[in-house]
Design a protein around this nucleic acid. Structure first.
Length: 467
DNA sequence: CTAGGGTTAG
């Protein structure tokens, strides 16, 4: 009995410790050897490892997935005893982590992973479709995934397919065909479906049709346009220079819908006003939000940071805005920092940008692809190549591919240095983040391969392509 | 953390 309690409590404590550990690699070590010192009581002989709870697996897999430590994550999944059947939410997390990392084949493999109980539901299928969409898989591939699965599509499935249709063909018409098909199959469109259509028409610049969808949804389907719908329409109006119309639409939005504590649409307006140099109007916009009890959300803060960085060129004000954001109870995210990094780089202050990026983890924000790309590009633009080399190593180590533009400049520098060994290692690093196959990139390389190391590197390239 | 928007790149 007490043994059972001890076991339970060990697994429980391990789960708590895993959850507490911010460093995923450290969490993994904890997971692999959970009983180093403290756990071993005075009377305990070399304790047999207690049975891990599903919870422990959940936590460690999620942590590793979020940190993109995929090989480690897979090995943990492989260690799952067959008595433990992790549930679908975990599967969905794994699939979408692969989607975010742009690894479609891995996402498919995860979907079929035997550790998870069959049969798959529409939810898992939809997660896979969404991951494939994130990987820019063409629509036909998504469709065949649907057919092959034998799972009944739901509204969510169609919403994803419609997004994919727009992303793939760039035309709204295929999305409309899918909409018709969904009606024929008796699947009721949701507010998301209409929001997707509105956005699609807006992105295509077809504002009249976008507004028509808004009308149809409320008149024929009795579904009220929500903040998403308004945000898309307002953004499109702002892009056409019709900021006053966007303003009027915002009035309608506020008077129309009750549960609008959503500040997203305000972000568009704020940024548009910044672009027009109307900072004063932004101030009254913020006051209006306060009056109406709408919380000034992250996006609004970020759009102001962007306004100060890009429209005003006033980095000091941008940092003040960052401080206001925190004071307002809003945690800056990578968008906030990325904007500042870009702003600093644009002013030639890449050393400050570098420092800011280094400070991000301490501030509770992980640098992402965009962070590194902007920093790397900025440093390369300014010719700070030895710092660029450091950033390059760091980003590649974390699995992020640099932009083509940055790579071109960076490789050009190495060429001028005439350092073949360095070039070779940069190639390997690029290959490791799948940044080696674009034709654009090959063009950038073609001018480089002319010294004695050429043959060797060409061979290396061939080998890498085969892999 | 099954789907849509708004703030940063492309």
């Amino acid at each position: 009995m007490s043994g059972a309690t001890a076991k339970f409590s060990s697994s429980y404590h391990l789960a708590a410790a895993l959850r507490r550990e911010p460093d995923p690699a450290a969490a993994l070590r904890l997971f692999l050897s959970p009983t180093p010192t403290a756990a071993a009581g005075p009377s305990s002989s070399p304790a047999p490892p207690f049975r891990y709870s599903l919870r422990c697996y959940d936590i460690i897999v999620c942590k590793l997935a979020a940190a993109r430590l995929f090989p480690a994550m897979e090995s943990v999944l492989a260690r799952l005893p067959s008595s433990l059947r992790p549930r679908e939410p975990l599967l969905c997390r794994v699939i979408s982590a692969y989607g975010r990392a742009r690894l479609p084949a891995a996402a498919r493999r995860a979907f079929a992973h035997p550790a998870f109980p069959a049969p798959r539901t529409a939810r898992a299928l939809n997660t896979l479709l969404h991951a494939l969409l994130a990987c820019r898989a063409p629509l036909p591939e998504l469709l065949s995934e649907c057919r092959g699965s034998g799972i009944h599509p739901d509204a969510c499935t169609y919403n994803i397919l419609m997004r994919a249709a727009v992303a793939d063909s760039g035309s709204v018409d295929n999305a409309c065909l899918l909409f018709d098909e969904m009606l024929q199959r008796g699947i009721a469109p949701t507010v998301v479906t209409f929001g997707t259509l509105v956005t699609a028409f807006c992105e295509a610049g077809r504002l009249e049709e976008a507004f028509k969808v808004k009308e149809v949804m409320s008149l024929q389907y009795n579904i009220r346009p929500n903040a998403h719908v308004y945000a898309s329409l307002m953004k499109a109006l702002c892009e056409k220079g019709k900021v006053d119309d966007a303003h009027r639409l915002k009035e309608e939005m506020v008077s129309n819908s009750e549960p609008l504590v959503d500040s997203g649409a305000y972000a568009t307006l704020a940024r548009a006003l910044f672009r027009l140099g109307k900072k004063g109007d932004v101030v009254s916009l913020l006051e209006e939000m306060k009056e109406k009890g709408i919380k000034v959300g992250r996006e609004v803060h970020n759009s102001m940071i962007a306004g100060f960085c890009e429209d005003e060129g006033d980095l000091d004000a941008a940092f003040v805005a960052l401080g206001d954001m925190q004071k307002g109870g809003c945690k800056p995210d990578s968008v906030s920092y990325n904007t500042l990094v870009g702003g600093l780089c644009k002013m030639g202050r890449w050393r400050d940008a570098s420092e800011l990026v280094e400070d991000m983890p301490r501030r509770g924000c992980r640098p992402d692809v965009v962070t590194y790309r902007r920093l790397f590009d900025g440093i390369c633009d300014a010719g700070g190549f030895s710092e660029a080399r450091r950033v390059f190593n760091e980003m590649v180590f974390k699995g992020f591919a640099p932009s083509k533009d940055g790579v071109r400049k960076f490789v050009g520098w190495i060429e001028r240095e005439g350092d073949a060994a360095s070039l070779e290692s940069v190639l390997c690093q690029l290959a490791s983040v799948n940044a080696l196959e674009s034709s654009e990139w090959e063009k950038a390389m073609s001018g480089v391969l002319h010294d004695p190391a050429e043959q060797k590197i060409v061979k290396l390239l061939d080998n890498l392509r085969l892999a």
